[in-house]
Design a protein around this nucleic acid. Sequence first.
DNA 1: TTCATTGATGCGGTTAGTTTATCACGAAAT
DNA 2: ATTTCGTGATAAACTAACCGCATCAATGAA
Lengths: 294, 294
Amino acid sequence: MNVELRLLKSFQALADHLNFHRAAEELHLTQPALSRQIQQLEETIGKPLFRRDKRSVTLTHAGRFLRGRVSGLLTDVTVLVRETREAADGQRGTLALGYTESAMASFLPSLLRSLREKLPHVSVQLKQGHSEQLSREVTLRRLDAAIVSGAGGTPIATEAMGVVLPDNHPLTVRKAISLSALADEKFILFPYQVNPSLHRNIISGCEQAGFFPNIIEEAESRILAVNMVAAGFGVTFLNENLAHYCGQGTAFRPLKVPKLFMQYCLVEPADGEHPCLDVLKKILTGLASKPNKA
Amino acid sequence: MNVELRLLKSFQALADHLNFHRAAEELHLTQPALSRQIQQLEETIGKPLFRRDKRSVTLTHAGRFLRGRVSGLLTDVTVLVRETREAADGQRGTLALGYTESAMASFLPSLLRSLREKLPHVSVQLKQGHSEQLSREVTLRRLDAAIVSGAGGTPIATEAMGVVLPDNHPLTVRKAISLSALADEKFILFPYQVNPSLHRNIISGCEQAGFFPNIIEEAESRILAVNMVAAGFGVTFLNENLAHYCGQGTAFRPLKVPKLFMQYCLVEPADGEHPCLDVLKKILTGLASKPNKA
DNA sequence: TTCATTGATGCGGTTAGTTTATCACGAAAT
DNA sequence: ATTTCGTGATAAACTAACCGCATCAATGAA
């Protein structure tokens, strides 16, 4: 014999009314049906829960104990059902989100803040990584989605790039620099494997400006690239939003049109139906309407 | 449509195995039955919990959320059933116990200590009062039982009484005093209403010793009676176990046979089937075997 | 193709639950 | 004392739910 929630609900009603007829009425049952249910519950427990005094029903010791606990259990169940429905709508649960360093350095903080506001009960599990690696983890279902720089998903944001020059460089006199003016420079770029799309973007951009960039170094991080510029190794490109990375010994200048752009994409799994992502995308379109907010 | 525990158990099994056949096997069901149950659960939730990929079953977002919570709920239920069974055996629940001042002053502390040891999960709610009042509350079911002095229940302990004399009283030279030697004394007793049985006991004891006691005062509490003895109003009777109540100006002397006794009784309700009381009675017989332990 | 494995579905039988009607008991009213 | 009402338990008939069997459709492997 097995306990079912229906039996516990019947028990609660009877414990409240201490009267089979009225309790059955509240449960939309007939009195004999309730009688059987209570018998069944008492059978599974093994001991009587009510004392039938031919005139009135009273709780036994075990019944009193149970009464004090059923209520909590039943509300637990209804809460669980409700919250599961909310989870289906994306209001609850977990969102494992991958992101790149550059995304975190620009629009991701405000995106996450909006997400927390819209979905306060969703726990966002963040994991930083490189674009390629994050995309792989999404297809392996170890991440629910990832925000990467480069192609490979739905575009969600673009950021213009600028040039980082040594502060003694003659071009620093200009407020903005055209790509063709950099034809003879030495370039420090990201490794191709870390962000192939950006790498290709830069090279094709230079080729359209009439030269092939002389890449003398590949730096693992943006800060390292800036430091190498300060040390005089060459010049590098940097998102306009990250211009504050440039400190002592360097100067940041935006590019003239045609600019170079860094593309951010949202990578989702094949049958992606994670409901939180719908909310996230809605927030993204909201952010896009007021560009470069971060 | 309503959620039943059977459905949640089936959900858990399928969420564990992600395979209808193996989950059904574990549940001692056939695969179609499980299929229907999952459909039914998804119908009540309103959203799918599993993604059937024609080749494999995976959890949806809502399913993942639910999986993390069902386990706790199901164990809550089994724990509740188990603890209710324990409550029926008296291992859990509440015991509302009335007691008199004198009981607490003698054997009740050790009784309660034993009770806590035998029934650590039973919360004992104590209420002090006079015998008559406590017996009434038991019949009104506001108390599960009461330990009173006097008749009216099953006898559980007897304590010999002694005499409290002013320390300048000539009888203090004797180590024990016969009741008949007190024929000419003035007596301070408990009010009749507070403990009629004791009152009657004392008077009939005195009559058998050949005199009717000269009651000059009725004191509400034992301490008060002792103080009145110290003030020279007369003499009083006191349980031997409470001899330490006698301080400055008084002297306690046991009675010679035939002694006076105070009877303690356990008062239970008419259909008393509170399981904790069985344990309590077993402890009481244990205490009786080593008398005057407290 | 052929076979095995996946989950879904239609059907018949069984079980469990519900209803209606009745019984046995006790208290209160007459 | 008798009647009347209200209590919960019970029997029989009906209904709905559920389970198991057989089968189907879709997919992947040999």
